[in-house]
Simulated assay, not measured.
Amino acid sequence: MAITLGQPQVDGLAEAVGVLREWQHDDAPMQLHPGDLGWYWRLSAETTAAAVRIWHRDGRMVALGLLDSPTLLRLVIAPDARPDEELARRLVADMTSVLPTGPVGIDAPAGAVIHDVLSEDGWGFDDPWTPLRRDLSEPVPDPGVRVEVVGPALVQARVAVHRAAFTVSTFTVERWHAMAAGIPYADARCLIAFDDQDNAVAAVTVWSAGAGRPGLIEPMGAHPDHRGRGHGKAITLAAAAKLRELGSSSVLVCATSANIAAVATYAAAGMRPLPEVRDRRRAR
């Protein structure tokens, strides 16, 4: 059975998002989520399409990769194809055309046979990440602060909180609108938390993959002028509650293990740390 590698046009992204939704399950490892494409969409639909790679076998999508940066491919594989060695070897062979020479990385689902093939090919491991999950079968506690869903009137405030929280960010009002116009944002919401002085203190974007499937937090940030007051925990609780309202079965997030404060914030909001995961790294 032939395996082919392709790059979608903009009008092909709807299929990619739909298949990614189908591949999300609570018992699956932390993996690329429709929300990851949705967050990337802030750079434009055309830029998102240019960063996506899709592998088909006999007309069926069996793997999808997102070039999250020029040197990092985030790869997701169809659940029933993760043990497929033929596919794994083809995916690794195709990295020569997908990634540049020199130091590069692959984020692949834990437990997939591709890790064995990567090891054979000399790929090592990068720094660890900590996935966290919260089950949403029960109601989520009230966050204890005022939280608003972002609409046109709050876009500037949402962008301002994000840029303050992530000082190297290039997020803008225009990029928020590009993201909000994307296919994945139909199942997403941006939220802002306000303190009792009406300051915007934290913000988050949550992405549903559909009813009965895990939702994603990407990204979450607290304004540095208001940190240390529980606002990160509060907006994370609000995010979980919003995803539950949207029908999600659980909420997922992933933080670098070295970011102890972020991991602690998510844990304080009732998210359970899962076993660490590592990107694969090739130095040559």
Rank of each mutant, 00 (worst) to 15 (best):
L136S: 09
L136P: 08
S137R: 11
E138H: 06
P139M: 11
V140Q: 05
D142M: 04
D142V: 07
V149C: 05
G151A: 15
P152N: 13
A153N: 05
V155Y: 03
Q156S: 14
H162G: 13
A165G: 14
T167R: 01
S169W: 11
F171T: 11
T172M: 03
W176H: 10
A178N: 00
A180G: 12
A181P: 08
A181H: 07
G182F: 10
I183Y: 09
P184V: 10
Y185A: 07
A186Y: 12
D187R: 15
R189E: 13
I192M: 08
A193D: 04
F194A: 06
D195T: 04
D196I: 11
Q197F: 08
Q197R: 15
Q197C: 08
D198W: 02
A200G: 05
V204D: 01
V206Q: 04
V206R: 02
W207D: 00
A211L: 13
P214M: 05
G215Y: 02
G215N: 04
M220H: 03
G221C: 15
A222G: 15
H223R: 10
P224I: 12
R227I: 13
G228R: 06
G230A: 09
H231C: 06
G232E: 02
I235H: 04
T236M: 09
A240P: 06
A241L: 01
K242Q: 15
G247W: 04
S250E: 03
S250A: 15
V251K: 00
V251E: 06
L252T: 05
A255R: 03
T256I: 12
T256C: 12
